[in-house]
Design a protein around this nucleic acid. Structure first.
Length: 208
DNA sequence: CGGATTTGACCGGCGC
DNA sequence: GCGCCGGTCAAATCCG
């Protein structure tokens, strides 16, 4: 599979929870993301950021990412972004609250980036652009272009600090990210366990 | 030519 | 009811 590259892989990303949701992911301000694979006894550290340098020449034979202690560390910003959204997808799937409809599932976060279009592993079709009140920055509307998938996405620059991009997702994909299928094939280590969270490790309010 | 994007029109909810 | 505001539609346009 020919997977598109992030146009600026050297970009320094950071993530903070935007607060639209009581959802807790704190990924600060490093390119290194470590995600637990669910094996650990202490599931409270299900996601964390490692600022340490990952040794090059990974044992996975996979440039840009390496594994250690049942975890993945990602040092390539492009991979980082893709995996982050794969993680979102899995977490979303596992945390779906049956009492709510898919449309009520929302994820929002802030990304420090000079890019507004960031590759999250899904294909999106832009369907609108609006200027928002009291903000110099327009808001862009996207829809997942996979047929039958109703997930929507909004992207705008933070009116208070235009170094940040606000992204929010509405809904749960009815399919996996194209890049996940790719990684499943390429990385046996991650195929079944990695990126899957134990239900007990989910924050109670996650995606509910 | 086909799919994606652009962009003004349209529409519905909400506060007054 | 009316106007504002945010979200969506869709025709025109762009682009590979």
């Amino acid at each position: 599979m020919d997977y598109p590259q992030n146009p600026k892989p050297s970009c320094n990303y950071s993530y903070t929870n935007e607060g639209l949701d009581p959802w807790t992911i704190e990924l600060q301000p490093s390119d290194y993301l470590m995600l637990d694979d669910g094996f650990g006894e202490d599931s409270s550290s299900q996601n964390m950021v490692s600022s340490e340098q990952v040794a090059s020449g990974s044992s996975t034979g996979y440039s840009g990412a390496t594994s250690r202690n049942n975890s993945m560390q990602i040092q390539d910003a492009n991979l980082f972004y893709n995996f982050f959204f794969v993680y979102l997808y899995r977490k979303c799937k596992n945390g779906v609250n049956k009492n709510k409809t898919e449309e009520e599932h929302r994820v929002a976060f802030r990304t420090k980036s000079d890019l507004e279009i960031m590759d999250d592993g899904y294909k999106w079709r832009k369907y609108g652009k609006k200027s928002v009140k009291n903000s110099p920055n327009p808001r862009n509307y996207y829809k997942c272009s996979s047929s039958g998938c109703n997930v929507k996405k909004r992207v705008e620059r933070d009116r208070e600090d235009s170094r940040y991009v606000l992204t929010s997702y509405d809904g749960v994909h009815n399919h996996e990210s194209p890049c996940m299928a790719y990684y499943n094939n390429q990385m046996p280590l991650m195929a079944s366990n990695a990126w899957t969270l134990q239900p007990s490790s989910l924050h109670s309010s996650s995606f509910s």
